[in-house]
């Protein structure tokens, strides 16, 4: 066994490291993620039936999922669900909500300015930055294609 070179060590490590249980993880992510989306869809249907406009209903659904995820995070339950749900709670807007609120709870002991204020977007910073940036790029393309009447 080659334990003296980087390649040798890497080979040994990969032989011994267990793989994530992909099938099971994907199934759980599908069930949890799908559940959240079905819940959202149900809410949207309810709002529409109450005569709320389509755009507003969609927005309301997002806001409710954000608030529910934030509350569950605050109660210390979100991480226990997410360790099973994986991408199922991460990919919907619940993951975004958890990333912001968990960071805010954590930074609370360091004060509201340099703690919460400075650190609240540490985890979801990339989403905000690249989300906004791609929005700008999309906007420019949208504008230009509009000029040529496409």
């Amino acid at each position: 066994m080659d334990i003296y070179t980087k390649q040798g060590k890497k080979r040994i490590i990969s032989e011994h490291s267990p793989h994530s249980r992909l099938g099971l993880n994907m199934l759980k992510a599908f069930l949890f993620g799908g559940g959240i989306c079905a819940f959202g869809e149900g809410l949207r249907g309810l709002f529409l039936s109450l005569g709320i406009k389509s755009d507003t209903s969609t927005l309301l659904v997002s806001m409710i999922i954000i608030v529910v995820a934030a509350t569950v995070t605050f109660l210390g339950v979100f991480d226990n669900i997410a360790r099973h749900a994986g991408a199922g709670t991460l990919v919907p807007i619940s993951g975004f909500s958890n990333a912001v609120t968990s960071q805010a709870i954590d930074a609370r002991s360091e004060g509201y300015v340099l703690g919460v204020g400075a650190k609240i977007f540490t985890i979801c910073g990339p989403v905000i930055l690249y989300g906004l940036a791609s929005g700008v790029i999309y906007g420019i393309i949208y504008y230009l294609t509009g000029l040529f009447g496409w």
């Binding site: 993880n25 210390g76 099973h84 709670t89 609120t101 960071q103």
Partner: peptide
Amino acid sequence: APTEYGGQR
């Protein structure tokens, strides 16, 4: 990550 952050290890 923060203590209440939900992730899969």
